[in-house]
Design a binder for these strands. Structure first.
Lengths: 189, 189
DNA sequence: GTGGCGAACTGTACGCCGTCCAGCTATATT
DNA sequence: AATATAGCTGGACGGCGTACAGTTCGCCAC
């Protein structure tokens, strides 16, 4: 509630602004700092004002999750299916690491938004190009998703205090690639 | 606060009883129903009484997490390393599915308790029997954990409403086995 | 213009949460 | 029997998500 605005006057918020404020809040204060009140304060608005733009906090978080996936590009249409998959999962992995606080939520509630569906379709398309279709493709899709998100979740944890996080992260990203290779080799049959 | 006990009188709680009550509460009311107040009520005690036995809620949850892993048995000492690994991970997977509400937490904060360490050591032992040691073993360990917990997390989600959960779960557990096979094949080199 | 309507916002409040503090008391120790 | 201590209590604090009712502004029909 900006003091220069008398009560009832509009702040002109939009759903996008609310989402952006939520993202900022998450970035600066972490997951536990992502509260309706914090987001509202960042927008100079009373907490309940958010409910004109978002049904509830769960919906807000869900939008946050799917939005993050928007940063993953579609694979090029002419790539070899296996390298295409490797690339797509690696990019997804990288995007997940960009917003560490969100990662546990993907596994807790899953992402069912448009971007999640787009990526799922992309994976299935690549698999089909490799001759993997039907239920087997569903299995492969699930294994890839699980591995990618699961790995990111593991990476994002605080972990026991030893070496500096830079080095640890570097070693891990190599591990991600190797395990992904195992999976892809298996999927090919 | 059992009315038959006048204030100051002891209920004779123990840390184990608090843990048990927390488990029951989790089972009946789900993760969001796991509150200090609910646990206390189940024990016939004021909420703050719990703090005589548990530092805070986070510690309680951590104990819950590690306790659940206690149900996973050690692999037999004479098993083939690959089938031993397959068995161990499958058992872990099954145990995870037994307390679905906990699964997301494993990825959110990880398990570092004695049982988690025991299982980790067991995996490393089996890997060593297969000639996989050093940093490569660490990578394999991580990949196996990630895959197992990640898969359970995925399975435990509500998912889009279609077929009955029994059938869905059956199909999934086959998928778990297959992906695990891919991983193990890759680890062997 | 002007009247009215609906959307955006406010203050306030409710019911929860985890947890701290100060007191009381039943038990264990000496 | 006197004392210390551990286990419990009532009460409260600050913070959370969010419902309710009211106020006020921007817009559109007339």
């Amino acid at each position: 509630m900006d003091p220069r605005r008398t009560p009832g006057q509009r702040a002109g918020l939009s759903r996008e602004q609310v989402l952006a404020a939520a993202r900022d809040s998450l970035l600066e204060r972490g997951l536990s700092g992502l509260t309706m009140r914090a987001v509202a304060q960042r927008l100079g608005v009373a907490p309940n004002a958010l409910y004109s733009h978002v049904p509830d906090k769960a919906a807000l978080v869900e939008d946050l999750l799917d939005d993050a996936l928007g940063a993953v590009p579609d694979p090029p249409a002419d790539a070899d299916w296996r390298t295409g998959l490797r690339d797509l999962m690696a990019r997804t992995h990288a995007v997940l690491l960009d917003s560490p606080d969100l990662v546990p939520l993907y596994l807790g509630r899953g992402a069912r938004g448009p971007n999640a569906r787009r990526l799922g379709a992309g994976v299935l398309d690549l698999l089909a190009r490799g001759g993997v279709t039907g239920p087997e493709a569903q299995e492969a899709l699930r294994a890839l998703i699980v591995y990618t998100i699961g790995f990111a979740a593991f990476e994002v944890q605080p972990g026991p205090e030893d070496a500096d996080p830079g080095e640890r992260s570097a070693g891990l990203s190599g591990t991600f690639d190797r395990g992904l290779g195992w999976l892809l080799a298996g999927i090919g049959g």
